[in-house]
């Protein structure tokens, strides 16, 4: 479904591969991972400035979540809009990432469960679907 979709912010989400990937960066010295890509390493014990691209992909562990029941200010282009879950997920790259959980799983969330990073269309730009990153339960293949 997302084959032809474009990311809502192209610089931060890569939909060109088999799996959706957030475009992070990793410090080549201390290994700290950043999303979005950082200008430099912020670890005060590191001091290295060298960062390399680090795709944030795969399965993570649900740290916490909420359900946003009221429509946010207009910058979020979900159309049509309906309440959705937002989650914090500890990704294997060592970074905790925030994102929407695919709508049909909103009632099934439990802290500690495994979620997979994916993408989902949230709006249309003319003919082209627009997608954002989204988490789905790890055992959900649909």
């Amino acid at each position: 479904m997302t084959d032809t979709a474009k990311p809502v912010v192209p610089e931060v989400l890569d939909l060109s591969g088999d799996a959706a990937a957030l475009t992070g960066s990793r410090c080549t010295a201390c290994g700290a991972v950043y999303y979005p890509r950082a200008a430099g390493c912020r670890n005060p014990e590191c001091g290295s400035g060298a960062l390399e691209p680090e795709p944030i992909v795969g399965y993570g562990v649900l740290h916490s979540f909420t359900v946003q029941r009221y429509q946010p200010p207009s910058l979020f282009g979900m159309d049509p809009w309906s309440p959705y879950a937002i989650a914090l997920v500890d990704m294997p790259q060592g970074v905790r990432v925030m994102g929407i959980v695919a709508g049909r799983h909103m009632q099934d969330l439990q802290i500690g469960m495994r979620l997979s990073l994916a993408s989902q269309v949230i709006a249309q730009d003319g003919e082209q679907p627009v997608a954002t990153h989204m988490f789905v339960p790890a055992d959900d293949r649909s």
Partner: peptide, 30 residues
């Protein structure tokens, strides 16, 4: 600015301030 968290939290997930606080509150219950 795609490197600005404030831009991304609105455009990629529409996360309001209460959403952040609520995730802390949910985690505390856990």
């Amino acid at each position: 600015d795609p490197s600005d968290g404030d831009y991304l939290r609105w455009t990629t997930m529409g996360a309001t301030n209460p959403a952040y606080w609520a995730m802390e509150a949910q985690r505390r219950l856990h």
